[in-house]
Design a protein around this nucleic acid. Structure first.
Lengths: 203, 203
DNA sequence: GGGGTTTTGTTGCGTTTGCAACAGGGAGAG
DNA sequence: CTCTCCCTGTTGCAAACGCAACAAAACCCC
């Protein structure tokens, strides 16, 4: 294990990317639980010892990969304060996440399904939760007057998001990522009590 | 440049494979001539200096790649002397080659076409020629009595093979690799004057 | 339960590779 | 023409990586 921060070395980035790709392919082929480190390193053409220089186990690989995706998405994270300035502010990070999911649709369908890993779903949901909690933590006191507790609303929305994504994947993505992001924004607006301009600019 | 022989080191094999893949993709995208070394190394996530440790230029990369394919195919190369022993002896190497072409159909369609490199087509044809020449060099003197010169027949057949492959690719491989190999075997049998049991076992 | 096979982690050392910086060349724009 | 920009090759040094071998745990089958 070395510095987890963004390494510039091309070898490191390549190694990680190849292992991520191998994880995608193998999970689709035989299910996440059945994938061994040996499988991963063989498919990625990476020595097994090198794997342990980067990750603790396959769960760590998955987690770090998701983290990278989230960080990539979070470039557009805080669209709260001066909304209305940058254009389409709220759904943008979500759209990127959905596009990633769309790109690896097979993988996510497996991971969220019976051959997948429940811990993954939980981790994914927890992460969504964190993002929602951050969003909702900025709401004004006035709007929180007679709403259910924050944690309940967060939980509700994050579970619902999984449900929507599963629906999206199971039905072969019958709508665009942008469309789904907008619908999700509408849902969360109504549930969480956030004012519309914080979810959709065109109110 | 280092030892061109088969290196066992996983890094070397991986580097070469990644560059080969990048060459395939980029050739399909923008044509072989437009591909730069910078493109290749960027796509393959390989440092440019590493490229020169393995290849002289993109032509060398292509040539060595083709050579690897041919060597892989040539495991079944000399089906001449004791034909009829091993089963389907003649078309087997050809089938492997056709299956490779089928796998990278986009690439070969581009390479043989207008955006491709004429030198590649020539090189490919020369290699086929060499294989045919080897086959025909073993024919008995009796059968060569009143046939056109060997070099003419070889030339004829090798060019015809390109034509057949182009037809196969342009039409989306309307028949299996095995079927095409059999047809090609029939053609060459009639043209070159080889006895049928050297091209097809079932005569 | 025992025994063979696979998988998991770990280590020291030799090799491959990336990096940075360089000089040269070719194409296009002023 | 010159200037800029990109692509081509090459180099010394530092870092990442592969290899081989190891012990231990997990698995499966008898």
């Amino acid at each position: 294990m070395q510095n987890v921060e963004e390494t510039k070395d091309l070898r490191v980035r390549r190694t990680r990317k190849l292992l991520q790709q191998a994880l995608m392919e193998l999970t689709v082929e035989k299910g996440f639980l059945a994938v061994t480190i040996h499988d991963l390193t063989e498919r990625a053409m990476i020595n097994r010892s090198t794997f342990y220089r980067h990750y603790l186990d396959k769960y760590d690989l998955l987690e770090q990969y998701m983290q990278e995706v989230y960080e990539l998405v979070a470039l557009e994270a805080p669209p709260i304060q001066n909304a209305g300035e940058t254009g389409k502010e709220v759904p943008y990070g979500l759209i990127n996440l959905l596009k990633h999911i769309q790109r690896y649709a097979d993988f996510y369908r497996v991971m969220f399904g019976a051959k997948g890993d429940p811990a993954f779903t939980q981790h994914f949901r927890r992460n969504s939760e964190k993002r929602f909690r951050y969003l909702l933590s900025t709401e004004s006191i006035a709007t929180t007057s007679n709403l259910p507790p924050l944690s309940l609303r967060v939980n509700y929305v994050s579970y619902a998001g999984i449900g929507a994504i599963v629906w999206w994947l199971e039905n072969g993505q019958p709508c665009s990522a942008e469309q789904l992001a907008e619908w999700l924004g509408q849902f969360s607006t109504k549930v969480t009590g956030l004012s519309p301009q914080e979810s959709r600019r065109d109110g």
